[in-house]
Amino acid sequence: MRAYVLLAVLLMLASPSAMALRCGNRLVTDGARDFQVRERCGEPFWSDSWIGVDVIGRDTPLERQREVQWSAWYYNFGPRALMQRLVFRDGELQGTETLGYGVREIGDDCRANMDFTGMSNGELVARCGEPAARREASDTVVYRPGPSIENWREQRREEWTYDFGDTRLLRVLHLLNGKVMSVETLAR
C-alpha cells in the first residue's frame, strides 16, 4: 500500500501544473515573464492594457505609491481548441482564463443577433473583428483592503459600434473593464 501512495505522490510532483498553458510542446505557468510567453506562444491576436497604483502607508509619515502595469493577452488556437486570456502584472503572468472555442479566421464568426453580453473584448475581436467605431472613458476606483493600504484601479468604460451592413441597424456594445455589459440597437 505504501508503494502505491509513494508512486501517486511522485506522479503528482512530476506532472506539470494544472494551471499551465501548453503552447505546442512548451508550457507556460504563472510567474513566467511576458517575453517568455511570447517566445513560447507567439504574438497574441489581441491585447489590452491598463494602469493601477498601489499605495502603501496611506496617512502615515512615509507613503509609497507604485504604478502597476496590467495587460491581458488573447490567444486563438483555432476552432477545435479553447481561446486563452493571459493576465500580466508588470510583465509577470498572474493567471490564465479559458474562454470559448476559437475561430478559424479572426472576425469571421459574427452575427448581428449574437448574445454579446459577458464576452471579453478579446473574444469579441476574435468573433467580430475590430469595431467600426470605438469610444473610451475611465474612472479611478480606490479599494482599501486594509489599514494604510490603497489600490487605485482604472475602471475602463468603452463603447464599441458594429455595423453589420446587411441590416438597417447598428449594434452598440457597452464594455466595462474589457467585458460586454449591455448591447444597444440603433437605427442608421
Results as ranks from 00 to 15, higher is better:
121 N>T: 04
105 E>C: 02
101 Y>I: 00
91 G>V: 04
80 R>I: 01
107 G>E: 11
103 V>C: 07
66 R>Y: 08
93 L>M: 09
97 E>P: 03
120 S>W: 02
105 E>R: 12
99 L>C: 06
59 D>C: 05
83 M>G: 02
74 Y>A: 07
78 G>K: 08
121 N>E: 15
118 G>A: 04
82 L>T: 14
87 V>S: 10
109 D>G: 05
82 L>K: 15
80 R>P: 03
106 I>V: 11
90 D>K: 01
74 Y>T: 08
78 G>V: 09
91 G>W: 04
75 Y>F: 14
67 E>W: 07
105 E>V: 12
107 G>H: 09
71 S>F: 05
64 R>L: 15
114 M>D: 14
105 E>Y: 12
120 S>I: 08
63 E>A: 01
68 V>A: 03
71 S>Q: 12
66 R>S: 10
98 T>N: 09
118 G>L: 01
84 Q>A: 09
103 V>F: 06
70 W>N: 03
80 R>W: 04
100 G>R: 14
60 T>C: 03
79 P>Y: 08
78 G>Y: 10
80 R>F: 07
91 G>C: 03
85 R>A: 11
121 N>R: 14
109 D>H: 12
89 R>H: 05
79 P>N: 04
118 G>I: 07
77 F>C: 02
100 G>Y: 06
97 E>R: 12
84 Q>F: 00
114 M>R: 10
80 R>Y: 06
82 L>F: 15
97 E>T: 14
118 G>V: 06
116 F>T: 02
77 F>L: 11
95 G>F: 08
117 T>V: 15
110 C>F: 10
113 N>A: 13
108 D>G: 13
116 F>W: 05
65 Q>W: 06
98 T>F: 01
61 P>N: 08
92 E>W: 03
74 Y>G: 03
86 L>K: 05
65 Q>Y: 07
110 C>G: 06
66 R>G: 02
66 R>Q: 13
77 F>I: 03
118 G>K: 04
121 N>P: 00
113 N>G: 08
115 D>I: 04
121 N>W: 00
119 M>C: 02
112 A>I: 14
104 R>F: 13
112 A>H: 10
117 T>D: 10
112 A>D: 12
